[in-house]
Amino acid sequence: MSTHDNGHEAGHDVVVHDGDALPARFENPGFEKHHPRMGDLDEHANKKSERIVVALFTISILGTLFFLIAYFVWPPGTTPVEMRRSNLALGLGLAFALLGIGTAAIHWAKALMNDHEKSEERHEQRSDDDTRAGAIEVLKDGAADSAIGRRGVLKGAMITALALFPLPIVLALIGNIGEDWNIGQLKHTMWKKGTRLTTDPVGRPVKASDVTIGSVWHIIPEGLDKEPHPLDEKAKAVVLLLRLDPRDIKREQGVGWSYDGILAFSKICTHVGCPVALYEQQTHHLLCPCHQSTFDVADGAKVIFGPAKRPLPQLPITVDDEGYLVAQSDFHQPVGPSFWERLK
């Protein structure tokens, strides 16, 4: 390690004697001269820097004190305004406590500490040849001591044992981590013949006569809250109910699946499963806010834009004796994102 304040100053110009005598490349001119700071030359400036450092530490102390006071004076309260005041006061206290220390330490280092650059040698990472030879020798000695080279069966047994021992843990983990591993559940929802369509989240049954043209209803099956795992069922069973002027309906996914212009589609996007819910009643388009797949509900919910491929599955519906909308059956295909064995 060496300081180099007095590093030589290289000449300004290349001395032009003769083209042949010049080196192929420029040479490193060596360290630049050290420029003293104001504080190095002027005692007053030095003292001033010291006072700034002290002031910054003081700001930090005040910040901490402010935090302690604010903690007791401004509790979070019950309104957003009180919460914001508490958060702001505590946060500013903490921020100043930290920023004070940080700026003080850095200003100290920059203005008051020795600013002469130092240089340290580097060495190649590679060990020298002797060390390498020594290392190989040591390993050879160890291998010879264990006699592993001569004992093939032992070696095989050891490797097999080591390779097998994680299996019990892996098996137990894989066996349980998917709970029942019943992937068939993906293909069914809780809709069945006669299940009433009810509003989400309240659960009111829906009369067909109440569904006016241009309206959209967010629907869950009746009895959802009685399921053992309502959210798991809801994640598959949510439906969007809309009514179009029957003259506007170009195509449906099944004959007789709608009732008097009332259509029900799965709300779960066939792309990656976001709820598709933006219904533009003038164009009959359904838009997914996550990735903008757009479905035309007048045309069997076919995809007209975006990353989804398949139409949203349609739920066949009809009305019961009391005029309430009910499902004719479950969906005729799995709802939601595609998966490998979807069609099997």
């Binding site: 109440d210 006016t212 309206s215 209803w217 009643q281 003038q282």
Partner: peptide, 13 residues
């Protein structure tokens, strides 16, 4: 009333 793109949310819904 469901203006423009917005669907109607009648008093039954």
């Amino acid at each position: 009333t469901g203006p423009q793109s917005m669907p109607v949310f009648n008093n039954a819904n």
